[in-house]
Simulated assay, not measured.
Amino acid sequence: MPNAEIILSERNPFDLTLKGVDKNFRLAIEEPTGFGRGTTKESQDLMRAMMTAHLLAPTMPENIYTNFDFHFSELLDAMYEYYGKKKPRIMKIGEGRVQPKIAGEADPEQSLRVATSHSGGLDSVYRIAKLLENKETPLAVHLRNLNFKGNAWEAEASREQCESWGVPYLQVKLRNSSGSTGFDTMKTRDLLLALVVAIQGAPNNVNQVLIEGGMGSDPRNYHFSESIEVWSWFNGLLKDIGLDVEVVGVDPGDIETIGEIIDLEKQLGITILPMVQNCFSAPFQMPNNRRKWERETPTIAQNSSDHWCGSCHKCRRMTLGRLFYHDPRLSGVSGEERGYFVKDTYDWIRKYPHNADLLSGSFMTHLELLGGIN
């Protein structure tokens, strides 16, 4: 795609449409309607630039036409250069410029030092648990519809978790037909997520935003939004635009994390693991996927989350950690059930070799050790 038009809605300052040849692609922040209140104009300009980058990531066109004043072209320049592309040209459409306003003023909010992106999955749950361990109550921000499936389920699980733990929870809802999926969405996903959390947390005086870690420096192995150098630049940019906040990536590890959460449940006196939104299976697939485990490993199945199919790599990760680190809820699991899980997981890896790319060294080490337990 050599050319692209990005059209900003006249009613919503965070509603962008990429006009395509055969179809349009849209990315909009629908809720809360006052998203961005109390932040600087520069913060809002950066949000639009980030949304534009997310829309353009799959195609990276050479020429970009907008109906609004586009600021922070350096963001697009950096993304294009990271992937070996020539910097794009950004031009205006017509004489008029769309400048929608945010309605209302920011209401005073509870002052909270830390905000964390919260998907309801194991890593985001771990971040909250560690903060609670340190007597820190965070603001949990869930960005709904960033992915293309399981969104209502994730949002409900996230809300229930935070209510149970006494953690303030806010949902930012996207309308997302951006066309940015798979590896394309990873190009900008974490930056988009962090900026949404930072802006949503501004009325709470948040000065630190926690997101998933696992960043690196090699462009061959890490996407733009996973680059350590990009994050260093981005944190400096946030300060420059008046968001006094630092984004920190938290890398909890893998199977060891589950053992740590089991200990935190005891220490904090709260239930965590059964509430984790952990599964890669679509809701309609889950009953069929669970049936085998209910038959072959009934104790494991009966004591697993409603968000557990048993068979995807995330659910196997959860079961492996709970068995290895002696989750008391699985104390009644027999050697036969444990052995079935280990054998079936090895068979699954052999049958679907592409899954090996999703499994860490920690996973394989713990699986081998669990298989050796009598």
Rank of each mutant, 00 (worst) to 15 (best):
R144Q: 12
N147C: 08
F148I: 14
G150L: 05
G150S: 11
N151F: 01
A152P: 01
E154F: 05
E156G: 11
A157I: 14
A157T: 12
S158D: 02
E160T: 15
E163L: 13
W165L: 08
W165C: 04
G166E: 05
V167D: 01
P168K: 10
Y169W: 13
R175M: 08
N176L: 05
S178H: 02
S178N: 03
S178Y: 04
G179S: 10
G179V: 02
G179M: 05
G179K: 04
T181H: 11
T185N: 09
T185H: 12
T188G: 06
T188E: 07
T188D: 04
D190L: 08
D190G: 11
D190V: 06
L191K: 08
L191G: 08
L192H: 10
A194I: 02
L195G: 01
V196P: 01
V197C: 08
Q200F: 00
G201Y: 00
A202D: 11
P203A: 00
P203K: 00
V206G: 03
V209E: 00
L210F: 10
L210A: 05
E212H: 13
G213C: 05
G214M: 05
M215D: 13
S217R: 15
P219D: 01
H223M: 08
F224H: 10
E226Y: 09
W231E: 05
W231G: 06
F234S: 00
L237Y: 05
K239L: 10
G242F: 04
L243H: 01
E246V: 12
V247G: 07
V247N: 00
V247C: 07
V248W: 03
D251R: 14
